[in-house]
């Protein structure tokens, strides 16, 4: 499969990832709106039932479960984690299970993408993803009359019956590649490839870039966060190896990133 043969020896590889500073996030939802507009995500008149809603970026609100005045709130924006998985072949949870090779791990960039026209909607990848980062098109895509004129020409709208997910705005990477090529350069500059959610965040909580490049801000933030022991990833113990890091100085927020630690008979907390 691609995940095994996609890597070309000698070719420079990148590891695009994200750092989200949860202490900065205000939960305004601008990242969600930007993502929907950028990626032609369809919506319906009535979006009451969030279980069938289409989100690539979703902001969760969590609390420390204490009553006033000790109560504390935190918002967790959750894009696709673009898991690196484990092992040499990058045994990503979703990529390894897709029966039709309709989801792909790009060894050059580390981006997990979805091939919509190949996906036949078995939803096995959704079952494999513990982050609920993958959503299914339960309806035919539709937009209010006239709004289809505002759709991005760079992103293909998805048909019903297929799975879709955050692509780290992969079309922006393509655009940046074209630009660099036309200008006779080889390297994409950090500011040339940024995701829509990163640019839309008014608090500057989201940082995007190449995790392997020491020049990039994400690299520095991760290193700094690791030193200060404030950087963490969601469900790290499962070994999914996500490329989205979170930063928070709050101890209870760091704990909330772990696997559910509830007790028998008690409801899932924080939600």
């Amino acid at each position: 499969m691609k995940e095994e043969h996609g890597h070309r020896p000698g070719k420079k590889t990148y590891k695009y990832g994200m750092v989200i500073d949860l202490d900065k996030c205000t939960g305004c939802g601008a990242c969600m709106v930007a993502c929907m507009a950028e990626n032609n995500i369809s919506f319906r008149k009535d979006e009451t039932n969030k279980l069938v809603s289409n989100f690539w970026m979703r902001v969760y609100k969590i609390t420390n479960g204490r009553s006033f005045p000790d109560t504390d709130v935190c918002y967790i924006p959750r894009p696709c984690m673009h898991c690196e998985g484990h092992g040499h072949h990058h045994h990503t949870p979703c990529v390894s299970v897709c029966p039709a090779c309709a989801t792909d791990y790009d060894h050059e960039t580390g981006i997990v993408s979805q091939i919509y026209t190949r996906c036949f909607g078995c939803r096995y990848c959704m079952a494999a993803c513990p982050y609920h980062a993958r959503v299914f098109n339960w309806w035919d895509p539709s937009w209010p009359k006239g709004m289809e004129k505002y759709l991005s020409p760079d992103v293909s709208p998805r048909m019903r019956g297929v799975v879709e997910k955050c692509t780290f705005c992969h079309h922006r990477l393509q655009r940046a590649r074209n630009k660099t090529y036309s200008e006779g350069r080889r390297e994409i500059r950090e500011d040339e490839y940024q995701t829509a959610c990163t640019q839309a965040c008014p608090a500057g909580a989201i940082t995007f870039g190449d995790l392997k490049n020491p020049e990039h801000k994400v690299h520095k933030l991760v290193e700094e966060g690791k030193k200060k022991k404030i950087a963490f990833r969601l469900l790290e113990k499962l070994g999914t190896n996500p490329k989205v890091y979170y930063v928070s100085t709050k101890d209870w927020v760091q704990k909330a990133a772990d696997v559910y630690l509830g007790e028998e008979g008690k409801p899932v907390t924080h939600a």
């Binding site: 499969m1 390894s96 299970v97 897709c98 029966p99 039709a100 090779c101 309709a102 190949r118 996906c119 036949f120 909607g121 078995c122 939803r123 096995y124 299914f136 098109n137 048909m159 019903r160 019956g161 297929v162 799975v163």
Partner: peptide, 25 residues
């Protein structure tokens, strides 16, 4: 069950031999 029944043949055509579902199909 599959969202795009007319593409059911993709499981054979683009088979991912590492997927349990492929083996099942």
């Amino acid at each position: 069950d599959i969202g795009q029944p007319l593409r059911g043949w993709h499981i054979f055509w683009h088979a991912n031999v590492h997927s349990m579902l492929t083996e099942v199909a």
